[in-house]
Design a protein around this nucleic acid. Structure first.
Lengths: 243, 243
DNA sequence: AAATTTTTATTTGTCTGACATTTAAAAGTC
DNA sequence: GACTTTTAAATGTCAGACAAATAAAAATTT
């Protein structure tokens, strides 16, 4: 692990990169303890605050964790799906909100991905996952539900659908896409009529999954996508030309 | 932007979270300048090193950038697809290498996602993207190509296929999945025979895209997936029982 | 007056040294 | 032997300083 004293980049960034490379290349393995901050400072020939800034950078990426105390220090993290997932949600959400990605584009991506695991889900979904979906459908039908709560339940429903594929990599990638869209979905007002429609489509999906009928799941998802886009369009139109 | 003095979490982590929340919620907008480090230190009632650690955390997530000098400071970054993408590749690569995700699981996820944009790509791919694919196929046929170079070209080919869908969100999500698998793919030795086979399948895909035939693209991808998994299995078997 | 150079102020980057806090192990005590 | 106290090591935080970069302001020259 060396740094280039000629480089114009921040020392803390260089040190972080050096350690990051060591982790990625396997020189540092999971749960291994890094040298103490003072030792690292000596190794890299910098001061402790500089080392600390580097370590905080790595901590922000969940590459390391720190513990205080006698046997404390910085340890290489085992990257968990959960951790990576929540980080991914933050990033995706910001991407959507900052880059003026159109609702249609986001929607298209989401459903394209979701349909990708629908057929796997039809094969593998467990009874538990099906029950979760049914429970969420039931919740969605409750009167007096706020739009936010309705959307949250919608996310949970689709999350269960995705998890049904039984592939953690897919769950990780997809769940973040679904969740990142939630702020956009929250901007849609769901009338009683549109909720009914969505719930019916959700029920179709659940029924098709119960029957392990991949084609019907796919068809229902296609319908749900086009209906969602229709709703968004109506909302956009009303905004332009308020009654 | 406030922090909880009762909390046991690091001050720098709390401050980073407070600023992060402000960015996500839109209180701080793109290219807006944060208060100077000294001002932030005063606001949060902490020292400057602590503020700096917080800012480094945000910089590690590309949420902010810093500039030195008179009009310098920390500015809110516009999250770019490229930046998010490279970060995502790092995370996904580590996830695959650290969590003993089986090759089959990763492969299944990758092709499920890839097939998801194949039909879009068949509709929308540009002549340029098709030409890129053809060029990569040509490169793959060159004798004397190392396995690493072959894999890199493979990534480029699939990247072009994904980009053909014309949906930046899909490109972003998918390209990272494809690229994250590269280290795993690099462990496979591609014999002349297997390269031939893969190149033929790539050609099938390109032809089908040229004809804008979504079904044929899908079929070729299914074949490619099963062939890739077959290859990986052979490699694993040879490792267990070396000739 | 215009162009160039110098100065100056501001801001981040880095260093030094100190103290607080947490934690586990070692030492001491009952 | 079980419990308590001490100690040492590590991270967390602070204060103050200087270095380096940078742009604006001021001064100088043409």
């Amino acid at each position: 692990m060396k740094i280039d004293p000629q480089s114009s980049a921040d020392l803390s960034a260089q040190i972080a990169q050096a350690i990051r490379d060591a982790i990625i290349s396997g020189q540092l393995i999971v749960d291994e303890r890094l040298p103490s901050e003072s030792e690292l400072a000596e190794q890299f020939n910098v001061s402790r605050p500089t080392v600390r800034e580097a370590l905080k950078r790595l901590a922000a990426q969940s590459l390391i964790r720190t513990q205080r105390g006698a046997t404390g220090g910085a340890f290489v993290n085992r990257l968990s799906f959960e951790g990576a997932y929540s980080q991914q949600v933050t990033t995706s959400t910001l991407l959507l909100s900052m880059n003026a990605v159109s609702f249609d584009t986001a929607c298209e991506a989401r459903y394209a991905l979701e349909r990708a695991c629908a057929s796997l889900s039809a094969q593998r979904r467990t009874a538990d996952q099906l029950a979760t979906m049914r429970a969420e459908i039931f919740r969605q039908a409750q009167p007096g539900l706020t739009d936010e709560a309705f959307c949250a339940s919608d996310v949970a429903f689709h999350r269960a659908l995705v998890d049904g594929a039984g592939n953690p990599v897919l769950s990780y990638q997809l769940a973040s896409a679904v969740e990142a869209m939630q702020p956009l979905m929250n901007m849609i007002t769901f009338t009683a009529r549109s909720r009914e429609e969505i719930i019916a489509l959700h029920a179709n999906i659940a029924n098709a999954l119960e029957a392990r009928d991949a084609e019907k799941v796919d068809a229902a998802l296609v319908q749900l996508e086009s209906y969602t886009r229709q709703l968004a369009q109506d909302v956009a139109q009303k905004k332009r030309k308020p009654a």
